[in-house]
């Protein structure tokens, strides 16, 4: 039994920006239920320093939560050269949409691309399933 479980993992406030990706779109048209699709979509990409601060290693599972909902996804370091502390990136899909508020400020369009949430290392053994 590891010692890790007795260490508290710090909670971190992050801003999630969503985008689309051609490889994910291709996996999506093949099958929304494929591992490829989940492996590309149930991912949060974080700044290198943010990973360190949250006590995360590449591929650790994180719980991301706000008033709209909660999901467990895999944390990976972002591929951007420039640092972007406090900002994380996710690909459009059911995982990140679980965190999108229903509030539209009268526009009829929710804030799909600007999501504030809290993130901690997760004790779950797998990502959130939508099947």
């Amino acid at each position: 039994m590891g010692f890790d479980q007795f260490l508290s993992s710090p909670e971190m406030e992050i801003l999630i920006i969503t985008h689309r990706d051609i490889f994910q779109s291709a996996a999506s048209s093949h099958s929304r239920f494929s591992d490829d699709y989940a492996n590309l979509t149930a991912i949060i990409r974080l700044d290198k320093q943010d990973m360190k601060k949250a006590g995360l290693k590449e591929g650790n599972l994180v719980a991301v939560e706000n008033s709209a909902g909660k999901v467990v996804v895999k944390a990976l370091q972002s591929t951007y050269e420039e640092p972007h502390p406090g900002t994380a990136y996710m690909l459009n899909g059911p995982w990140v949409n679980a965190l999108v508020s229903a509030e539209t400020s009268g526009t009829g369009v929710p804030a799909f691309k600007y999501i504030e949430a809290k993130m901690t290392k997760s004790k779950e053994s797998s990502i959130t399933s939508f099947e």
Partner: peptide, 12 residues
């Protein structure tokens, strides 16, 4: 269309 995937979770 796949609204369960593309709409905010609570609404879906």
């Amino acid at each position: 269309s796949d609204p369960l995937s593309s709409l905010p979770g609570r609404i879906a």
